[in-house]
Amino acid sequence: MNEGIRYSKKIMDLFLHPKNVGELKDADGVGKVGSAVCGDVMVIYIKVAEQAGKKIIMDTKFKTFGCAAAIASSSMLTEMVKGKTLEEAEKLTWKDIEKALDGLPLVKTHCAVLAIDALKAAIKDYKQKLKGEKE
């Protein structure tokens, strides 16, 4: 722990001025991961629409309790998936977030992992809801 933590400028910018903060009242999928006990809770909201036979993430929002890296990771994730198809979004990994943030300190990589988990949970939630509607 005593090595100290240095964040990239990108992380600090996003942390201090996060994008897509909030909730989507009419979200098609919601993913909540982490626990307050461990110091990180992330909630990702997605709005999905079909265009030319493809399911596209039209809007995303997030709310995060956590450190600067957790907030920046969730903000970056919402920016990265907006306008992507579900298939494209599902291919994202924590490494993509890490890269987009110009790197994460080693002890903070779990924040990017958590953001991906939150997205996966939101997509799963969307798919389950869709299945429920069809049945």
Partner: peptide
């Protein structure tokens, strides 16, 4: 007073 470890933040 918290310490950050690789998996979680230790309170």
């Amino acid at each position: 007073g918290s310490a950050c470890s690789t998996r979680a933040v230790e309170p």
